[in-house]
């Protein structure tokens, strides 16, 4: 039995979207970790403040949150496909 002919197209969509989820989480982690510890490791006297918050925190957590929200919106609108959940066979 060749796999290609039988694969439910909805599964391909699902697999791709799960990979997108993994990629987003990874990007989210790198941003969060990089700015928090990259900038946060400086001596406190060198911190700048954005909207009153320490710069490392603002970029890592506040901006990071805004960016990941934007990324989720873009990914959902552009790449996520609406698939039917009910099986066609059920109609029998």
């Amino acid at each position: 039995m060749t796999k290609k002919e039988t694969t439910d197209w909805r599964y391909k969509v699902a697999n791709r979207e799960a990979l997108i989820g993994l990629a987003l989480a990874l990007a989210n982690f790198i941003w969060w970790f990089g700015f928090a510890y990259g900038m946060g490791s400086r001596p406190v006297e060198e911190y700048k403040y954005i909207m009153g918050l320490p710069d490392w925190f603002f970029i890592s957590c506040v901006l990071g949150f805004l960016l990941i929200t934007a990324a989720v919106i873009i990914v959902v609108k552009l790449f996520f496909v609406e698939v039917p959940f009910e099986d066609e066979e059920e109609m029998q």
Partner: peptide, 24 residues
Amino acid sequence: VLLAMTQVVTGYFVLMILGKKFAI
């Protein structure tokens, strides 16, 4: 607060990973 913000990922990750395959 930095630690707590790791939870934002749950907002999209769970549904994207389990997602459509689980539903189907």
